[in-house]
Simulated scan of single mutants.
Amino acid sequence: MKKSIYLLAAAAIFAACNENKGYIVTGTVEGAADGDTVYMAAVEGRRLVNMDSTVIQNGTFTFKG
């Protein structure tokens, strides 16, 4: 019985960890025109490396992944 409870608990934890909901980043930009591009970048060494990009619409942008 004790092993069954541990197995059930481990399965529940594993299922919770595998639930990949992704991410959503939303923002606003003042002074930017519709159609301008916003970049999400990471720093690698001394360089910025673009990871994703999106287009501004009505002063807002959204990254989804």
Rank of each mutant, 00 (worst) to 15 (best):
G45D: 07
K21S: 12
D34R: 02
D36F: 03
T62L: 12
A42P: 01
G65L: 06
E44C: 10
V25Q: 06
C17D: 05
N50P: 14
N20E: 11
A12Q: 00
A42W: 00
T60Y: 06
A15S: 12
N18S: 15
N18P: 04
I56Y: 07
C17L: 15
E19G: 08
G35M: 08
V29M: 13
G27I: 02
K64S: 13
F14D: 01
Y6A: 15
Y6F: 14
A10D: 03
T26A: 09
D34Q: 02
L7N: 15
V49A: 14
I24Y: 09
F63Y: 02
K21P: 04
I56A: 08
T60D: 05
K64D: 09
L7E: 14
F61S: 02
G45N: 04
K2I: 07
V38I: 14
C17M: 15
A10P: 08
G22W: 10
V25T: 00
N20P: 01
R47V: 04
G31F: 02
A15I: 07
G22Y: 05
T37K: 15
Y23I: 02
L8W: 03
N58C: 00
A32K: 09
D34C: 13
D52E: 15
M40E: 09
K64C: 02
V38Y: 12
M1R: 07
I13M: 15
T28P: 03
